[in-house]
Design a protein around this nucleic acid. Structure first.
Lengths: 339, 339
DNA sequence: TTGAAAGCGCTAACAG
DNA sequence: CTGTTAGCGCTTTCAA
């Protein structure tokens, strides 16, 4: 793990000596502002060539230490195990690099302790800006960052002390619920309440989605069955055991469900298969999130796809605009057509 | 020695002044080696408390610049859009942190240029070690790192200038092919060659998997149809159009397929649905990779799950062991049971 | 038991 | 046009 002490890395001083010039000239040339310093094209070329030959690599730690902006941008993200967060991270990296920023990402496994730990570490690395994605306590992170004079933006889950970019969960849930209700009615010729399963009762997104879920029921004139609102957490195991408990208590399982993320859907699907409860007649499902293979599972699943490109576009606009108003920007999700 | 008014961050000098001691004492205390320096417990406590109160955060750039080891460990990874790489990245982070290392990850979108660019950047950030995951040209990266005296380990795809940890692609493919062949024979009562689709004909993993594919055919006494070996690339679109081209050329599509990754499977499934070619009688599939929703798609799909925990365990053993032998360690993948 | 001091490699202001 | 110089914040001898 140790670097071989023999192969000392080339520094601008080495380059300066080889070129018979000074470190500052080298620095200026290598940073592309040799014009400003009116360094001769000849010298500039000589230095550039030398750097190439010697395999010179800038020492970022030294550079960042000296500059006032690090150009490092951090993101914390709960997990990498689903398409939603995967595409967020992927596009975050692309856009960051486009802007000449260096992205560092840390996954917090949905652990609140790890979240603040990760934020602290990122501050140690002098990030210029921190994006808190799906954080359980965005305000805690915002405070931490404020203390260090670092900007924060909340993504996916909103906070009250920094700008937030989130999906329009209410609208998405409203439409998704409508569709599943309609699908159920079409097939079973009966107006009956759906099951809501997955998510945390305390998180903003889940609250908003439940609100949309209720509103769709209200609009259809169907009373919500309170035993059918299961905000049991996101993990597959939690969704699975929530289903199990419900089945033990109720004599009549719902014809349709609103599943709050693909993560939870994993558990729901597992339960459906294992329990054999729906052996004759699969329930109609609605999933708040998108996954290509879920889309292939059959015509009985509707999906809401969160508009990641748009969300990240706004995030970076916010970064560029330098504003720190604590707005909450809601991005309409996309309804995937069935089949 | 005047601090600019912009730098609002607390430094060890601020702390030293507040505690009426020196920066070196503060540094020692905050690094936990105040015992070695026999600093009084009293002073140590005072400093610790002060740091807490002031919200002191270590400046990693300064710290790393001064130390000889950065304790930063880098990983480059092709994509975040599938479970395999997702779990690699997730577990990499966990294990790195367990060891007190700071993980930085960069996704290269399978772009060879970006790969070396990313490696260079990581070297600039003084990584102590770089893991090249699924790199198209691992040796190029190994050379780059060697020049900087930094260790490299190849993951997923092997190289010849650094230790490599990969799946046993041959064995996995052999067994997967056997199963699909058996499934086909059971259903159609006929020995017929499978289609191999996805992956790059030039990459080691694909070559090994094709070898296993051929061997399984040989063992079953079935000649491989050369038109049925379609190493068309990983992307869904590529797999999809490869299927299309094949269908246009051949009068008889295969009853079974070996699909080289879930990524490619996405395209294959799409083609199967859109083309209507298999309207009566789904083909038996084998997928080299695992995804929970693919597992739910039906009994006609077999999967090979690469043993990510084991692979990463070996990667970190390699890191700890400090060895740089260019071994290739093959980890047996796990055959998922159907259903 | 503790502090002073010397840099790590780089950037940028200031003098030529 | 170019070099000198003064640190950025931290770690680590070395001296006391």
């Amino acid at each position: 793990m140790t670097r071989t002490p023999t192969s000392k890395r080339t520094t601008i001083y080495d380059l300066a000596e080889l070129a018979g010039t000074s470190a500052s000239a080298v620095s200026a040339v290598l940073n592309g502002n040799w014009k400003k310093r009116r360094i001769s094209a000849q010298l500039a070329e000589k230095i550039t060539k030398l750097a190439e030959e010697q395999g010179y690599a800038l020492n970022m730690q030294a550079s960042v230490l000296r500059r006032e902006r690090s150009k490092i941008i951090g993101m914390i993200v709960p997990k990498y195990d689903n398409r939603y967060f995967g595409s967020i991270v992927e596009q975050f990296e692309v856009r960051a690099r486009e802007r000449g920023l260096f992205p560092i990402i840390t996954c917090t496994m949905r652990d609140p302790e790890l979240e603040v730990e990760a934020a602290r570490t990122m501050l140690s690395y002098q990030v210029d800006c921190l994006i808190a994605t799906g954080a359980t306590d965005p305000d805690r992170i915002a405070d931490l960052c404020a203390g260090a004079g670092v900007r924060t933006i909340n993504l996916d889950l909103p906070g009250s002390r920094a700008p937030s970019v989130i999906s329009n969960n209410y609208e998405g849930a409203l439409e998704l619920t409508r569709r599943v209700l309609a699908n159920c009615e079409r097939e079973y010729g009966e107006k009956a309440p759906l099951l809501f399963v997955g998510g945390r009762g305390s998180d903003h997104n889940t609250i908003e989605r439940v609100r949309g879920f209720r509103e769709a029921h209200a609009q259809a004139g169907i009373p919500v069955d309170e035993a059918f609102v299961q905000t049991c957490g996101y993990a597959p195991e939690k969704a699975e055991s929530a289903m199990q408990r419900l089945a033990e208590k109720t004599s009549r399982m719902p014809h349709g469900m609103f599943v709050n993320s693909t993560i939870s859907l994993e558990g729901v699907m597992r339960w459906i298969r294992r329990s054999g409860h729906y052996a004759n007649g699969v329930p109609h499902l609605g999933c708040f999130d998108w996954d290509p293979f879920v889309a292939m599972l059959g015509d009985h699943i509707e999906m809401v796809r969160q508009d990641v490109p748009k969300m990240l576009e706004i995030v970076f606009d916010l970064i560029d605009s330098n504003s720190s108003d604590t707005v909450v920007i809601k991005v309409p999700p996309i309804m995937e057509r069935m089949g």
